[in-house]
């Protein structure tokens, strides 16, 4: 299993006692196999347990397709919003010195420590039927809670920090010298951003967008609070999984779940490739 001599940097004296390496590796492999890999396999085994025919039926059902469409719609709105936000916030925070910066950074990270259910709850308190602005908005013919717009807003809050927190540490480390040089040479701020800053951060930006997309596709708690959970209308893929499961349609639930799991695996592979290829360009690698 383990071979300490491969770690040539470390002398004989600092080598771990023989059994320790073997025990640690066995514990790691065993724990991860039971805790992480088994559930992943279970998704595909359960999805295909009643045969490939039923599986294909389940994922091509009209409600399933409309769940896929709704999930993609939410991703296509929420992710670009948070990408623009991440770029703008990172520009303000890393290229300028101003008071209150630390507070702003704390605010940007705050959504990560708010329970998804509370994220959804807060928007219900604002825009729900008994919310602060709910009745007024309803009088104007605008509905947010129980509607697709509520799902988009809740998803945007939950995934708000993902792009910003990949860009900020990297742009902080890169400093402002290149931008100053461009500005001194007469480039406009806009041109400096597109031709100097953006090429420097492109891999970190892609990395942040990837993490943001993965989370936006799978968001469940926040979305389940603000959605009416009507199949075919306001059910995203994770909500469709729950609805089918509660209707004792396990095969259907696991079929939709397997699509989400496949996307999660693709995202993991893309993430690993980005980390290996562009390690130097990703300031926030391994920091979540």
């Amino acid at each position: 299993m383990s071979d300490p001599s491969r770690l040539e940097r470390r002398s004989h004296a600092a080598r771990d006692p023989g059994p320790m390496a073997a025990v640690f590796v066995v514990l790691t492999v065993g724990f991860m196999a039971v805790a992480l890999i088994l559930p992943l396999l279970a998704v595909f085994v359960e999805a295909l347990s009643k045969g490939v025919g039923l599986y294909l039926n389940a994922i091509s059902e009209s409600d399933a397709l409309s769940a896929v469409r709704l999930t993609l719609l939410v991703v296509v709105i929420a992710v670009p919003l948070n990408t623009v936000f991440g770029l703008t916030a990172a520009w303000a925070v890393t290229k300028f010195e101003f008071s209150g910066k630390q507070l702003l950074l704390t605010l940007i990270d705050l959504p990560l420590s708010i329970s998804p259910v509370i994220s959804g709850l807060m928007f219900v308190l604002l825009y729900g039927a008994h919310g602060w602005f709910g009745p007024e908005l309803r009088a104007m013919g605008i509905q947010i809670i129980f509607d697709v717009s509520g799902i988009v807003i809740a998803t945007t809050l939950v995934t708000l920090p993902f792009v910003a927190r990949e860009l900020i540490p990297l742009m902080q480390a890169q400093g402002k010298d290149e931008e100053y040089a461009a500005a001194t040479l007469g480039a406009s701020t806009w041109r400096t951003f597109w031709q100097v800053t953006l090429p420097n951060i492109r891999w970190a930006l892609l990395y942040g967008v990837l993490l943001c997309t993965a989370r936006a596709m799978g968001e469940f708690g926040a979305v389940s609070v603000v959605s009416a959970r009507v199949r075919g209308e306001t059910a995203t893929m994770p909500l469709e999984v729950e609805i089918l499961y509660n209707e004792y349609n396990a095969t259907g639930a696991f079929a939709i779940a397997s699509l989400l799991a496949l996307f999660a695996l693709v995202a993991l592979i893309a993430k690993t490739v980005l980390e290996n290829q562009f390690a130097g360009d990703l300031a926030a690698q391994r920091r979540h």
Partner: peptide, 8 residues
Amino acid sequence: PFALPTAV
């Protein structure tokens, strides 16, 4: 666990 949706 970061990538797999919680409902799944």
